[in-house]
């Protein structure tokens, strides 16, 4: 496997990961708007002024998102947040795929670099504490 093959594999992860995540975000937004349109417009106002209303749920943990996804009818913003988390995970998945590809190539320096980078990213996520 050449450097070109690694680049193709990572490109596929970034492209499809990004597209899939953004599609989920869009579906979530549509579900949210379809469920209660006046409420949705009011929610948009909170974007412009955080204190304007506290009735829009912003999910800040995976447990919250899971709870929102189990609700019926579906909580649209939970689906949008799931897409958002997918988007945040996409570049990290790209590094993981690069690690696997370099491993198959037995390219030791880049296996070490990718592994170190992945470890540091995971440490950063753990330090952030939210995800």
């Amino acid at each position: 496997m050449t450097s070109w093959a690694v680049e193709r594999a990572v490109a596929r992860v970034l492209f499809w990961g990004g597209l899939f995540s953004v599609s989920l975000m869009l579906m979530g937004l549509c579900a949210y708007a379809a469920r209660d349109q006046p409420h949705a417009w009011e929610g948009l106002r909170t974007v412009q002024n955080r204190q304007a209303g506290g009735d829009v749920d912003i999910f800040t943990t995976l447990a919250d998102v899971r709870r929102g996804l189990r609700q019926r009818p579906l909580e649209g913003l939970a689906l949008a947040t799931l897409g958002l988390l997918g988007l945040l995970a996409t570049p990290i998945a790209g590094v993981a795929v690069a690690l696997v590809c370099f491993g198959r190539q037995r390219d030791r320096p880049y296996v070490v670099i990718s592994a170190l980078l992945l470890a540091m990213l995971l440490v950063s996520l753990a330090l952030a504490g939210g995800v």
Binding site: S21, M25, I58, L88, T90, A128
Partner: peptide, 27 residues
């Protein structure tokens, strides 16, 4: 993208990523 992925989790945990704003921006 790689360097921001870790930073973004901090914003997410603090509730600073509003899906109603982030979704149209991301698309």
């Amino acid at each position: 993208g790689v360097t921001s992925a870790a930073t973004a989790s901090v914003y997410f945990a603090h509730g600073d990523i509003h899906p109603l704003l982030a979704t149209p921006v991301a698309i």
